[in-house]
Amino acid sequence: MGNDKPKLKLAVYWGAACGGCCVSVLDVHEKLFDVVANADLVFWPIALDVKYKDVEEMPDQHIDVTLFNGAVRNSENEHIAKLLRQKTKIMIAYGSCAHMGGIPGLANFSTKEELYKRVYEDSESTENAQKVYPQTETTIAEGKLTLPNFYKDVCTLDQIVDVDYYLPGCPPQTERLVEVFMAVVTGAELPPKGSVIGAGSKVQCDECKREKVNKSGITRFYRTWEKEDDGKTCLNEQGFLCMGPATRNGCGVRCVEGNAPCRGCYGPLDGIPDPGAKMMSAIASMLNEKEEGDIQKALDTVVDPAGTFYRFSLPGSILRRKQS
């Protein structure tokens, strides 16, 4: 089918990311042949030897689709994000980090100074008596060495550049990527700009097979090792904090299918600016306690609420980062 048409030009880039998103692209396995049949990969640092300057030399809008994964947390990420935006027709924020900040976004709970101190001084494996910290410029005998500037804030991709679509997940489900890709290739009508693609339009519970018993409210929460899951009842009803009720589906309820509570990597449904707020509201509502002391005791069992409810979404949430 794609033979009579010019091949699509595809780019994949990682910003502040773990690499899992790139691996998820590789996970297309034999479908990669379909992809390659229809597209040229013009830029993909983990797989292809293409230099930044090669990208810089491309004409504007040269690339059809860029899958940008990872958050933006330093000047290099920002530079490439802007560059790719300029060279790309359809910019897709790929994966939780580009979408909402993701796990690297949890750094927004700390200041740059705190992070540096932890990483370059205090961590158990570090010995740094001279307190050597990364510098953006270091002059040595041979000349000047540069490092990207480490930003104070971790940003979502759309806080830096205009984003056309969001493909959520940590990482996104590979099948979803192939669907999206094939839609672009076949010239199917694309959803309105700004849409979340490759995901469902309801939350996790819609596909979840676990039973709701609607007995009484929750009196305390459990971390997964604290209590045995019965394997069939709604995890929230058992007291395990499951982000399912406020998290978009599309992953196939993978975590819950594997008997682990949903962590919320697919983010909220359309029109919900703050998944954590929604989840806090739902969870708190499910509590049974009425007395202030009892409520506090029950909430004591929610270890690290901010980190729990904003595990993947802190930079993209309403409050964005910790005040300093």
Partner: peptide, 8 residues
């Protein structure tokens, strides 16, 4: 169309 049936 939006309801997932979570029954919260």
């Amino acid at each position: 169309e939006r309801c997932c049936g979570c029954q919260v």
